[in-house]
Write a protein that binds this DNA or RNA. Sequence first.
RNA 1: GGGGGCGUAGCUCAAGAGGAUAGAGCACCGGCCUUCUAAGCCGGGGGUUGCAGGUUCGAUUCCUGCCGCCCCUACCA
Length: 654
Amino acid sequence: MYRELQTRLSERIRHVLRELYGIENFCIVIEQPPRVELGEYALPLGFELARKLRQPPRKIAEQIVAALGGLEGFQGFEIAGAGYINARLDRSGAARALIDETELPDPPPCHPAEILVEHTSINPNKAAHIGHLRNAILGDTFVRLLRAGGHSVDVQNYIDNTGVQVADVVAGLLFMERRSKEEILRMAEADARFDYTCWDVYPRVSQWYEQSSENAARRAEVLHAIEAGGNDIAEIAAAVSTSVVRFHLRTMQRLGIEYDFLPRESEIIHLHFWELAFQQLKEKGVVYKETAGPKAGCWVARRPRPLGAAAAGVGEEEDTKVIVRSNGTVVYEGKDIAYHLWKFGLLGRDFGYRRFYHYPDGRTCWMSAEESEAGHPRFGGAHEIYNVIDARQAEAQHTVVEALRGLGHAAAADRYHHFSYEMVALTPRCATELGYPLTSDDMARAYIEVSGRKGFGVKADDLIDLMIGSAQKEVDARHAELAAEERRSIAEQIAIGALRYFMLKFTRNSVIAFDFKEALAFEGETGPYVQYAVVRAGNIFRKAGISPVEALDPAADFQRWFSGETGAEIWELWLAAGKTTYVVEQCISSQEPAYLAKHAFQLAQLFSNFYHRHHILNEADDERRRFLLATASVAHRELIRTLGVLGISAPPVM
RNA sequence: GGGGGCGUAGCUCAAGAGGAUAGAGCACCGGCCUUCUAAGCCGGGGGUUGCAGGUUCGAUUCCUGCCGCCCCUACCA
């Protein structure tokens, strides 16, 4: 509702500017007045045009208001302050428009989809931790936002199954723990917490490497065997990584996160994606062979010079990034270039596809393979891509984008988005609680970085379990009358709501200093606060004996109820409810899901306030009662819709 | 050294593409449960937006310079 009316206003203003001043292509800024009494939209147009037209802002505003006349859906326009034009909505009309807004279903899946989002992408050598949760929750929420915005989206989770991280765990199991191939294969198959087992093995391997040069040599040995394929070590590595990936999928499934496709590095290697990309890179001169200096024998790419460092002149060295090492092996960025050419359909080769995982909702998660299974969909060839990757990898992402540009794929490069976010770290207090010894320097820091290599961090499933347990206690205390199974289900919904909201309430470039106390909070600006508002709204309809939909009469005229101070307060709730689509769009264009979390909270806050002030079921005036019920219904619907996009469901009772 | 990010209430964070009196939550203090669920609501104290300049009608936001913290800057992935 809010978005459509804003568009209408914007178009009308554009028309008026053309008629009045002959101004075209002016960027019309539309804001919101500080208080709703001043109207629903504010235009600082007078200020912006003052210089251009050599007239005082207020005068310009007067001319524009006079030219605007009436506009459907608007009650009128007025000038405020030194030259703002404020627009007032026809509240009753806007309310009817909002009542009519029924939820649009997500677009049906189609492959390949218009947009490709890559997220999660955890090294398959250990259990997921809280940092991975932030990635997956941000990525999944962004996918939901895009789908809510009407886009078709494929979700990919890149599996680096041939890298050193997997090699380290394999070396650890095989050579450090001296386990047999059969034993490791059995563990990968049967160990109920194989991801946790690996979590414990991994940090010990680093120490073991340091004990002797023979130990250290195992890393390269294993790595090479994995890359070569067709040997016992490669078989073990495949079993280990595939098993861990399954654990990751299960962990994420607990949070409602699903994937369409898992492209693996092993296929990028074995299907020779890199060779194709290398050919293109050489032909276009994006990479060249270094003949002298420390990088002699390497194929390198020029690094675009940062804007600031241009004029230095003296002692300038060519700044290059190695793509192929002097021993002929390709660095990670090289494989990534090939992979991203594929994402845009520019490589000239496709993966094979096989079924890997089936979700209860019927969706299939596919995995890359050398040979395709019958009936497979296609992925890649996307129009636009988003990579949910933490901010520390900005440089590597930049290298890939510039390579695409260098290859002449400028349009693709422009549609390549690094969806960057900051890491999740631990507060020193939290680290201490977990039993990690800290130096006094560490204690003074704002946060301590988690490290899988050191085994230092909070495992995702542990956190989820802890949160469910905490919610369970509350549910048990409040609803002893419910069956255990139902209490469990409610506790899960609350825990997931709390966790997802917690990861989304911070803007992307803010480091989250993780703390159990804050993450486990169910009061204040939290997911459960929003869920609670939904539950309370639901109770009203249950007790009133009607459904929320029945409470909405499209023909109703609520004009009289929106006037006065009380009316204005209630109108604020309607207005906020009408902004969901608007906020969704803002989130997409700014790549910032936190705005939607904020919207959910504000809506819940307004509703809680309304709930407290107006006792609906006791309302004697029948017409007013209907109005209040409609208000609760619209709030209820938009809260559920917003939570849905955040990946949070509301339990029936709390 | 170079590149990037950050600095806002005691703490954790907002401020929607420069706008009207800088807002929330937590914590603290004080009120509200025979009412549609108190995981809630109301009230209170709390700020020189790191410092100094500049740009303009107007700056937490843009520019410059300092101070402080963090990340990146591998023939690791």
